[in-house]
Design a protein around this nucleic acid. Structure first.
Lengths: 159, 159
DNA sequence: CCCTTTTGGTAGCATGTTGCAACCGTTGCA
DNA sequence: TGCAACGGTTGCAACATGCTACCAAAAGGG
């Protein structure tokens, strides 16, 4: 078989996250969910995605516990898709991608949709990676420990 | 045509980021690059990805300015792939995905690779979304300012 | 009620992409 | 010099994606 490679058994949390989200459409669905979209048609119009794709993605997101299918809030017989707590926890991921995109793929002054503080209407502060005691960390200030507790704490990754 | 949909002209920075990265393999390549991988073979062994796929991904990452191909640091005739500043700026994205994965896809105590502060060997602080003046923000505390829509992607059945 | 429109999907097809295995020129090294 | 490792390329089969057509149930208007 030539199925797409899965990462759900990887020991790397990044890989499992990536696997759980599924594909880029899913991430844009989540983005729209943060922005208030709830109905099938809302996602479809906002994204311009084919309906069969949207159906499949919503289904996997629900199965993965990122979205939840609930009765429509307006009393109609339709259903709505809302973020679960697990889905809401993707907020920093979306914000990080948004900030990276803003900084790297828009000309100065080029208009783009912008995520702002609701209270003051200002742009958000750039995300900062910090140590447990609050120091700002660059990539070089960090390292990856494989299997933290029960095995030899190796610092290098040689299999 | 039935090419995969591109988002590089979207007005949403998240969509452009997603488009620039390309696919999940690319993100895992970047993750490995943060972890010190530089050589074709290192990525290939670490990821278990087919070589043709890896070739294509490295090429698009270089073309997109995320990686850079430089002469090997050990003096050999081979080349190495290193993160550009633009690639290093993906650090918060990777960290956000890692933290989401750690919290949601591992049983308590289940071993997994862990990103730690190099100086103290401790786990990192969870990423926090903050306003310009430093208040912590939840998704509900933010809103998206849309820009004038220049192009609406629609899928219509009717003429 | 009856008719029309909207909503939320399925089904089928063409094409693109992925994964695998085989192959191949270069480079490194003993 | 010989041989293994490196860094790819090529070809193929299976799968995923996108598009269009189609459809049933639910709203909505008169």
């Amino acid at each position: 078989m030539v199925t797409r490679t899965r990462f759900d058994d990887s020991d790397c949390p990044v890989a499992r996250s990536v696997d759980a989200i599924g594909d880029w459409w899913s991430l844009l669905i989540v983005r729209d969910a943060f922005d208030g979209s709830r109905r099938f048609g809302e996602f479809q119009r906002s994204l311009g995605v084919a309906k069969n794709i949207l159906t499949a993605r919503l289904r996997t997101l629900v199965a993965g516990g990122v979205l939840e299918s609930v009765p429509a809030s307006d009393g109609s017989a339709y259903r709505e898709y809302v973020l679960t707590p697990k889905g809401e926890a993707l907020f920093p991921v979306i914000v990080a991608l948004r900030q990276w995109g803003e900084e790297n793929f828009f000309a100065p002054g080029e208009p783009h949709s912008q995520l702002v503080d609701r209270r003051q209407g200002h742009r958000l502060r750039a995300l900062e990676v910090r140590s447990a005691d609050g120091r700002r960390l660059n990539p070089d200030d960090t390292t990856v420990h494989k299997t933290p507790v029960h095995k030899t704490p190796t610092q290098r990754s040689e299999p």
